[in-house]
Design a protein around this nucleic acid. Structure first.
Lengths: 149, 149
DNA sequence: AAACACCCTGAAGCCACTACAGGGTCAAGG
DNA sequence: CCTTGACCCTGTAGTGGCTTCAGGGTGTTT
Protein backbone atom coordinates (compact mmCIF):
# COMPACT_ATOMS: atom_id res chain seq x y z
CA UNK A 1 0.00 0.00 0.00
CA UNK A 2 1.35 3.43 -0.98
CA UNK A 3 1.36 6.39 1.34
CA UNK A 4 -1.57 8.20 -0.28
CA UNK A 5 -3.76 5.17 0.10
CA UNK A 6 -2.78 4.82 3.74
CA UNK A 7 -3.47 8.49 4.36
CA UNK A 8 -6.94 8.15 2.85
CA UNK A 9 -7.60 5.08 5.00
CA UNK A 10 -6.75 7.04 8.13
CA UNK A 11 -8.26 10.31 7.06
CA UNK A 12 -5.01 12.23 7.40
CA UNK A 13 -2.45 13.72 5.04
CA UNK A 14 0.61 12.01 3.61
CA UNK A 15 2.70 14.66 5.32
CA UNK A 16 1.36 13.58 8.69
CA UNK A 17 2.36 9.99 8.02
CA UNK A 18 5.86 11.00 6.91
CA UNK A 19 6.08 13.16 10.04
CA UNK A 20 5.08 10.20 12.23
CA UNK A 21 7.76 8.08 10.60
CA UNK A 22 10.38 10.76 11.18
CA UNK A 23 9.40 10.94 14.85
CA UNK A 24 9.32 7.19 15.38
CA UNK A 25 5.57 6.88 15.86
CA UNK A 26 5.46 4.35 13.05
CA UNK A 27 8.34 2.20 11.81
CA UNK A 28 10.04 3.17 8.56
CA UNK A 29 8.40 1.43 5.66
CA UNK A 30 9.99 -0.67 2.97
CA UNK A 31 10.87 1.28 -0.17
CA UNK A 32 10.29 0.45 -3.80
CA UNK A 33 13.77 -0.21 -5.19
CA UNK A 34 12.87 1.51 -8.46
CA UNK A 35 11.24 4.76 -7.43
CA UNK A 36 11.89 4.90 -3.67
CA UNK A 37 8.15 5.07 -2.91
CA UNK A 38 7.11 3.93 0.56
CA UNK A 39 5.16 0.67 0.76
CA UNK A 40 3.18 -0.25 3.83
CA UNK A 41 2.10 -3.57 5.33
CA UNK A 42 -0.28 -4.75 7.99
CA UNK A 43 2.03 -3.93 10.90
CA UNK A 44 2.13 -0.29 9.82
CA UNK A 45 -1.64 -0.20 9.62
CA UNK A 46 -1.86 -1.72 13.10
CA UNK A 47 0.57 0.72 14.66
CA UNK A 48 -0.96 3.68 12.88
CA UNK A 49 -4.35 2.62 14.21
CA UNK A 50 -2.91 2.68 17.72
CA UNK A 51 -1.22 6.04 17.20
CA UNK A 52 -4.25 7.74 15.66
CA UNK A 53 -6.43 6.41 18.47
CA UNK A 54 -4.03 7.93 21.02
CA UNK A 55 -3.92 11.22 19.10
CA UNK A 56 -7.71 11.32 19.00
CA UNK A 57 -7.46 11.16 22.79
CA UNK A 58 -5.13 14.18 22.58
CA UNK A 59 -2.06 12.38 23.83
CA UNK A 60 1.28 13.93 23.03
CA UNK A 61 3.82 12.19 20.85
CA UNK A 62 5.98 11.65 23.94
CA UNK A 63 3.13 9.88 25.71
CA UNK A 64 2.38 7.77 22.66
CA UNK A 65 6.04 6.76 22.34
CA UNK A 66 5.94 5.56 25.94
CA UNK A 67 2.78 3.59 25.32
CA UNK A 68 4.30 2.06 22.20
CA UNK A 69 7.31 0.99 24.22
CA UNK A 70 5.10 -0.70 26.79
CA UNK A 71 3.05 -2.23 23.99
CA UNK A 72 6.17 -3.76 22.44
CA UNK A 73 7.63 -5.03 25.68
CA UNK A 74 6.00 -8.32 26.73
CA UNK A 75 7.61 -8.05 30.17
CA UNK A 76 6.09 -4.68 30.96
CA UNK A 77 3.16 -4.65 33.29
CA UNK A 78 0.17 -2.41 33.30
CA UNK A 79 1.48 -0.01 35.89
CA UNK A 80 3.38 2.29 33.55
CA UNK A 81 0.50 2.26 31.10
CA UNK A 82 -2.04 3.10 33.77
CA UNK A 83 0.16 5.89 34.98
CA UNK A 84 0.40 7.52 31.56
CA UNK A 85 -3.37 7.39 31.11
CA UNK A 86 -3.99 8.66 34.64
CA UNK A 87 -1.64 11.59 34.22
CA UNK A 88 -3.06 12.48 30.84
CA UNK A 89 -6.59 12.29 32.22
CA UNK A 90 -5.51 14.58 35.03
CA UNK A 91 -4.17 17.14 32.56
CA UNK A 92 -7.39 17.05 30.57
CA UNK A 93 -9.47 17.55 33.72
CA UNK A 94 -7.32 20.46 34.82
CA UNK A 95 -7.63 22.07 31.41
CA UNK A 96 -11.41 21.69 31.48
CA UNK A 97 -11.57 23.43 34.84
CA UNK A 98 -9.39 26.26 33.55
CA UNK A 99 -11.52 26.73 30.49
CA UNK A 100 -14.72 26.68 32.53
CA UNK A 101 -13.36 29.47 34.69
CA UNK A 102 -12.53 31.34 31.50
CA UNK A 103 -16.02 30.70 30.17
CA UNK A 104 -17.56 32.22 33.29
CA UNK A 105 -15.35 35.27 33.06
CA UNK A 106 -16.15 35.75 29.39
CA UNK A 107 -19.88 35.46 30.11
CA UNK A 108 -19.57 38.10 32.80
CA UNK A 109 -17.56 40.30 30.47
CA UNK A 110 -20.10 39.90 27.71
CA UNK A 111 -22.90 41.02 30.07
CA UNK A 112 -21.14 44.38 30.39
CA UNK A 113 -22.44 45.34 26.97
CA UNK A 114 -26.18 45.01 26.70
CA UNK A 115 -26.92 48.18 24.76
CA UNK A 116 -24.82 48.38 21.62
CA UNK A 117 -23.84 51.93 20.82
CA UNK A 118 -20.72 54.02 20.88
CA UNK A 119 -17.98 52.11 22.60
CA UNK A 120 -17.15 55.07 24.79
CA UNK A 121 -19.77 53.64 27.08
CA UNK A 122 -18.88 50.05 26.29
CA UNK A 123 -18.50 48.15 29.52
CA UNK A 124 -16.41 45.50 27.84
CA UNK A 125 -13.57 47.83 26.94
CA UNK A 126 -13.80 49.49 30.33
CA UNK A 127 -13.62 46.12 31.98
CA UNK A 128 -10.64 44.99 29.93
CA UNK A 129 -8.90 48.24 30.81
CA UNK A 130 -8.85 47.13 34.42
CA UNK A 131 -6.07 44.85 35.61
CA UNK A 132 -6.85 41.20 36.09
CA UNK A 133 -7.67 39.96 39.53
CA UNK A 134 -5.39 37.50 41.19
CA UNK A 135 -8.04 34.80 40.97
CA UNK A 136 -7.77 34.98 37.21
CA UNK A 137 -5.16 32.35 36.49
CA UNK A 138 -6.48 30.29 33.62
CA UNK A 139 -3.35 30.75 31.59
CA UNK A 140 -1.81 28.16 29.36
CA UNK A 141 1.34 27.56 31.35
CA UNK A 142 -0.52 26.04 34.27
CA UNK A 143 -1.66 22.97 32.44
CA UNK A 144 0.05 20.58 30.14
CA UNK A 145 -3.29 20.36 28.35
CA UNK A 146 -2.85 23.78 26.98
CA UNK A 147 -3.83 26.24 24.34
CA UNK A 148 -7.04 27.91 23.49
CA UNK A 149 -6.45 28.76 19.85
CA UNK B 1 10.22 52.91 34.01
CA UNK B 2 12.61 50.32 32.60
CA UNK B 3 11.52 47.05 31.06
CA UNK B 4 12.49 44.88 34.02
CA UNK B 5 10.40 46.98 36.35
CA UNK B 6 7.44 46.79 33.98
CA UNK B 7 7.81 43.02 33.67
CA UNK B 8 7.80 42.65 37.44
CA UNK B 9 4.70 44.84 37.67
CA UNK B 10 2.87 42.60 35.23
CA UNK B 11 4.32 39.34 36.43
CA UNK B 12 5.75 38.45 33.05
CA UNK B 13 9.22 38.30 31.50
CA UNK B 14 11.04 41.09 29.71
CA UNK B 15 11.12 38.85 26.65
CA UNK B 16 7.33 38.76 26.60
CA UNK B 17 7.16 42.56 26.64
CA UNK B 18 9.69 42.88 23.84
CA UNK B 19 7.70 40.26 21.94
CA UNK B 20 4.49 42.25 22.42
CA UNK B 21 6.21 45.35 21.12
CA UNK B 22 7.47 43.51 18.05
CA UNK B 23 3.95 42.28 17.33
CA UNK B 24 2.26 45.62 17.88
CA UNK B 25 0.39 44.69 21.06
CA UNK B 26 2.04 47.62 22.81
CA UNK B 27 3.46 50.75 21.17
CA UNK B 28 7.22 51.04 20.86
CA UNK B 29 8.66 52.80 23.87
CA UNK B 30 10.93 55.80 23.98
CA UNK B 31 14.62 54.94 24.18
CA UNK B 32 17.34 56.33 26.38
CA UNK B 33 19.61 58.25 23.99
CA UNK B 34 22.70 57.12 25.89
CA UNK B 35 22.23 53.39 26.33
CA UNK B 36 19.22 52.62 24.14
CA UNK B 37 17.25 51.20 27.10
CA UNK B 38 13.47 51.20 26.73
CA UNK B 39 11.56 53.64 28.95
CA UNK B 40 7.87 53.24 29.58
CA UNK B 41 5.13 55.67 30.49
CA UNK B 42 1.56 55.49 31.70
CA UNK B 43 0.09 54.79 28.27
CA UNK B 44 2.23 51.67 27.99
CA UNK B 45 1.09 50.52 31.39
CA UNK B 46 -2.53 51.09 30.41
CA UNK B 47 -2.26 49.20 27.17
CA UNK B 48 -0.29 46.37 28.71
CA UNK B 49 -3.00 46.08 31.36
CA UNK B 50 -5.56 45.69 28.59
CA UNK B 51 -3.44 43.18 26.69
CA UNK B 52 -2.61 41.05 29.72
CA UNK B 53 -6.25 41.00 30.71
CA UNK B 54 -7.17 39.76 27.24
CA UNK B 55 -4.41 37.15 27.31
CA UNK B 56 -5.62 35.94 30.72
CA UNK B 57 -8.92 35.34 28.94
CA UNK B 58 -6.96 33.27 26.39
CA UNK B 59 -7.58 35.60 23.47
CA UNK B 60 -5.21 35.32 20.54
CA UNK B 61 -2.94 38.17 19.52
CA UNK B 62 -5.09 38.63 16.40
CA UNK B 63 -8.20 39.06 18.54
CA UNK B 64 -6.43 41.45 20.87
CA UNK B 65 -5.19 43.55 17.95
CA UNK B 66 -8.78 43.85 16.75
CA UNK B 67 -9.98 44.88 20.19
CA UNK B 68 -7.16 47.42 20.43
CA UNK B 69 -8.25 48.87 17.11
CA UNK B 70 -11.83 49.23 18.32
CA UNK B 71 -10.56 50.65 21.60
CA UNK B 72 -8.59 53.35 19.78
CA UNK B 73 -11.36 54.27 17.37
CA UNK B 74 -13.88 56.61 18.98
CA UNK B 75 -16.30 56.09 16.08
CA UNK B 76 -16.43 52.33 16.48
CA UNK B 77 -19.48 50.91 18.12
CA UNK B 78 -19.85 47.95 20.36
CA UNK B 79 -20.92 45.56 17.65
CA UNK B 80 -17.45 44.49 16.50
CA UNK B 81 -16.30 44.19 20.09
CA UNK B 82 -19.27 42.08 21.07
CA UNK B 83 -18.69 39.88 18.08
CA UNK B 84 -15.08 39.18 18.98
CA UNK B 85 -16.04 38.26 22.53
CA UNK B 86 -18.97 36.14 21.39
CA UNK B 87 -16.86 34.22 18.92
CA UNK B 88 -14.10 33.70 21.42
CA UNK B 89 -16.58 32.51 24.01
CA UNK B 90 -17.98 30.13 21.44
CA UNK B 91 -14.53 28.68 20.81
CA UNK B 92 -13.93 28.20 24.51
CA UNK B 93 -17.29 26.47 24.93
CA UNK B 94 -16.63 24.18 21.99
CA UNK B 95 -13.22 23.30 23.36
CA UNK B 96 -14.69 22.48 26.76
CA UNK B 97 -17.23 20.14 25.15
CA UNK B 98 -14.45 18.45 23.18
CA UNK B 99 -12.32 17.95 26.25
CA UNK B 100 -15.26 16.61 28.25
CA UNK B 101 -15.86 14.02 25.56
CA UNK B 102 -12.18 13.17 25.77
CA UNK B 103 -12.39 12.93 29.53
CA UNK B 104 -15.25 10.43 29.29
CA UNK B 105 -13.36 8.35 26.77
CA UNK B 106 -10.23 8.35 28.90
CA UNK B 107 -12.25 7.30 31.96
CA UNK B 108 -13.73 4.43 30.01
CA UNK B 109 -10.30 3.48 28.72
CA UNK B 110 -8.85 3.56 32.21
CA UNK B 111 -11.58 1.21 33.44
CA UNK B 112 -10.25 -1.44 31.04
CA UNK B 113 -7.36 -2.07 33.40
CA UNK B 114 -8.51 -2.87 36.89
CA UNK B 115 -6.11 -5.69 37.68
CA UNK B 116 -2.53 -4.62 37.09
CA UNK B 117 -0.43 -7.48 35.79
CA UNK B 118 1.21 -8.43 32.54
CA UNK B 119 0.07 -6.12 29.81
CA UNK B 120 -0.72 -9.02 27.52
CA UNK B 121 -4.07 -8.95 29.21
CA UNK B 122 -4.14 -5.17 29.51
CA UNK B 123 -7.45 -3.91 28.25
CA UNK B 124 -6.02 -0.45 27.65
CA UNK B 125 -3.54 -1.53 25.02
CA UNK B 126 -6.13 -3.81 23.44
CA UNK B 127 -8.55 -0.94 23.34
CA UNK B 128 -6.06 1.45 21.80
CA UNK B 129 -5.24 -1.19 19.19
CA UNK B 130 -8.78 -0.83 17.89
CA UNK B 131 -9.54 1.94 15.43
CA UNK B 132 -11.32 4.99 16.71
CA UNK B 133 -15.05 5.20 16.29
CA UNK B 134 -16.52 7.87 14.12
CA UNK B 135 -18.01 9.59 17.12
CA UNK B 136 -14.52 10.23 18.41
CA UNK B 137 -13.77 13.61 16.96
CA UNK B 138 -12.28 15.70 19.73
CA UNK B 139 -9.27 16.66 17.70
CA UNK B 140 -7.56 20.00 17.76
CA UNK B 141 -8.46 21.13 14.29
CA UNK B 142 -12.15 21.37 15.09
CA UNK B 143 -11.81 24.23 17.52
CA UNK B 144 -9.85 27.39 17.51
CA UNK B 145 -9.47 26.86 21.24
CA UNK B 146 -7.09 24.02 20.74
CA UNK B 147 -4.35 21.96 22.19
CA UNK B 148 -4.16 19.57 25.04
CA UNK B 149 -0.46 19.74 25.87
C1' DA C 1 4.12 14.19 -26.06
C1' DA C 2 1.46 16.51 -22.83
C1' DA C 3 -1.38 16.59 -18.84
C1' DC C 4 -2.19 15.37 -14.37
C1' DA C 5 -1.93 12.68 -10.20
C1' DC C 6 1.09 10.95 -7.23
C1' DC C 7 5.65 10.41 -4.94
C1' DC C 8 10.32 12.24 -2.92
C1' DT C 9 13.34 15.52 0.24
C1' DG C 10 14.24 19.43 2.92
C1' DA C 11 13.14 23.85 4.65
C1' DA C 12 10.00 27.27 6.41
C1' DG C 13 5.69 28.72 8.61
C1' DC C 14 2.13 28.56 12.42
C1' DC C 15 1.39 30.35 17.70
C1' DA C 16 2.93 32.65 21.89
C1' DC C 17 6.31 32.57 23.81
C1' DT C 18 11.13 30.79 26.00
C1' DA C 19 15.96 30.24 25.92
C1' DC C 20 20.30 31.21 24.49
C1' DA C 21 24.51 33.53 22.44
C1' DG C 22 27.18 37.37 22.54
C1' DG C 23 27.53 41.64 23.65
C1' DG C 24 26.95 46.58 26.20
C1' DT C 25 25.80 49.41 30.61
C1' DC C 26 25.61 50.66 35.36
C1' DA C 27 26.07 50.89 40.42
C1' DA C 28 28.31 49.17 44.49
C1' DG C 29 32.15 47.35 47.00
C1' DG C 30 37.25 46.32 47.69
C1' DC D 1 40.89 51.30 39.26
C1' DC D 2 38.94 46.90 38.98
C1' DT D 3 35.75 43.46 39.61
C1' DT D 4 31.32 41.60 40.41
C1' DG D 5 26.69 41.09 39.42
C1' DA D 6 22.39 42.92 37.92
C1' DC D 7 20.33 44.69 34.23
C1' DC D 8 19.79 45.94 29.25
C1' DC D 9 20.34 45.20 23.95
C1' DT D 10 19.78 42.36 19.33
C1' DG D 11 19.11 38.37 16.83
C1' DT D 12 18.47 33.48 16.37
C1' DA D 13 16.70 28.97 17.48
C1' DG D 14 13.68 25.93 19.96
C1' DT D 15 8.84 24.17 21.54
C1' DG D 16 4.61 20.73 19.37
C1' DG D 17 2.15 18.78 15.80
C1' DC D 18 1.60 19.47 12.14
C1' DT D 19 0.94 22.34 7.26
C1' DT D 20 2.78 24.46 3.30
C1' DC D 21 5.98 25.29 -0.10
C1' DA D 22 9.95 24.78 -3.37
C1' DG D 23 11.88 21.97 -6.55
C1' DG D 24 12.14 17.98 -8.32
C1' DG D 25 11.05 12.75 -10.05
C1' DT D 26 7.58 8.98 -11.45
C1' DG D 27 3.42 6.79 -13.43
C1' DT D 28 -0.78 6.58 -15.94
C1' DT D 29 -3.88 8.31 -19.25
C1' DT D 30 -5.04 10.72 -23.43
Amino acid sequence: MKIGELAKKFNCTVETIRYYEKNGLIPASARDSVNNYRHYQQRHIDQLTFVRHCRALAMSHAEILELLKARRDPCANCHSIDQIIDEHLQHVSVRIAELQLLEDQLHTLRQQCKTPGSHKDCGIIQDLDRPLEKTVRAEQDISHVSGSH
